[in-house]
Computed example of a mutant assay.
Amino acid sequence: MEIVIQPTPAEVDSTVADIVEGYVRAGATTLGLATGSSPIGTYRELAARHRDAELDFSLARAFLLDEYLGLPKRHPQSYYSVIRSEFVDHVNLDPAMVSSPNGEAQCPEKEIARYDQSIAAAGGVDVQLLGIGTDGHIGFNEPGSSLTSRTRVKTLTEQTRIDNARFFDGVDDVPHHVLTQGLGTISDARHLVMIATGEGKADAIAAAVEGPLSAFCPASVMQLHRHVTVVIDEAAASSLKLADYYRYALEHKPSWQSF
């Protein structure tokens, strides 16, 4: 696991965009896309590079982490809609090649099996972007989630619903249930890239990176993964015990070694 501490959120966004750009410029690639506030700056940076530096997404495809159960896909806060308005509509990534769990599925059990199968059939995810909740959740894998879980229906904690209420008219409009890739599904991706900024994420980052491997902090599953890059700003790094070492390691990173 590599911890990259950058001075500002803008530099976090640029670093993550560098990682994604490397995959995209290498040719056909499968992106794992997260929604929420954490990756928005990265998506804006990638859109600017598409516009100004001819970053071509035409050979890429993508899978989303999750979706609200029962929310129509054309609802402005469905992740089907959000990823298009925040990212896909601003680059030349074919919308037909952007897959997400169907929150309107009549049989969620069949839908979750279909979704995992579709990821596998595509050859898996090359690089998966991740945010982290204040309680350590990734995707919608709330504390207590099995570290080997697959795509499934989850019940949101009240805190998550409160955190997401800012995107709706109020907490009563936030669905109670979601379809989410499981921690095992996420871990199948070949490269995990976590994005976090702000002091409010500091304790969650410390628990995920330096705490015990535990279902209590779902993001700690990253400790088992063979290729993880955690990109954070100074505020989000403020609870890390080994922050000075992470800075030292980045400063002395071999020139031939990529993220």
Rank of each mutant, 00 (worst) to 15 (best):
R152K: 11
R114K: 12
V20N: 03
Y80C: 11
K241M: 15
F168D: 08
A189S: 09
A96S: 13
F87M: 02
V98M: 06
A196E: 02
T35F: 06
D172T: 10
R51W: 06
R51A: 09
H225V: 07
G170V: 07
H137F: 09
E86T: 12
D89C: 09
A60E: 03
S214G: 04
S238E: 08
T15P: 10
A165I: 13
R150C: 10
S146N: 13
Y68P: 05
A96K: 15
H176W: 13
A28M: 11
V82G: 03
R51I: 04
A17I: 00
S214I: 02
G70D: 10
A60M: 10
D89P: 06
F87I: 04
D56R: 10
P254G: 10
I112A: 05
R161P: 08
A47Q: 05
V221Y: 01
L147T: 05
E199A: 15
I119K: 04
P254C: 12
D233Y: 04
V16N: 01
A202P: 03
V12I: 08
A237F: 01
L59D: 11
T185E: 06
Y79V: 09
A219P: 12
H50D: 03
A207V: 01
G103P: 08
L240P: 04
A60D: 01
G211F: 08
A53H: 15
G198M: 09
R49Q: 02
A105Y: 07
I195C: 10
T134W: 09
D56Q: 08
G27Y: 06
I112H: 05
V153R: 01
D94G: 05
V209D: 02
L46G: 02
V193P: 07
H191N: 10
Y248D: 14
A243M: 12
K154N: 15
Q106I: 15
T134F: 11
G41Q: 07
Y245A: 14
R74I: 15
Y248L: 14
L213P: 02
A243K: 09
A53L: 10
S238W: 01
G182Y: 02
Q77R: 09
S38M: 07
S99G: 14
D172Y: 07
K241T: 12
H227G: 13
S220I: 01
V12S: 04
E234Y: 08
R25L: 05
T15G: 11
S220F: 03
G22M: 08
I112Y: 05
P175F: 04
F167P: 12
L93S: 00
V230K: 01
P9M: 12
V221E: 00
C107G: 15
G27P: 06
D52Y: 10
M194W: 08
V125Q: 00
V125E: 01
M222D: 01
D18F: 11
W256C: 15
W256H: 14
S100Q: 14
K154A: 15
D52G: 11
G133H: 02
L192Y: 02
S187G: 15
E111M: 04
A219E: 01
R114H: 09
N141D: 14
P39G: 04
E11P: 05
K154F: 11
A236P: 02
I5P: 00
A207N: 07
Q77K: 11
S258G: 15
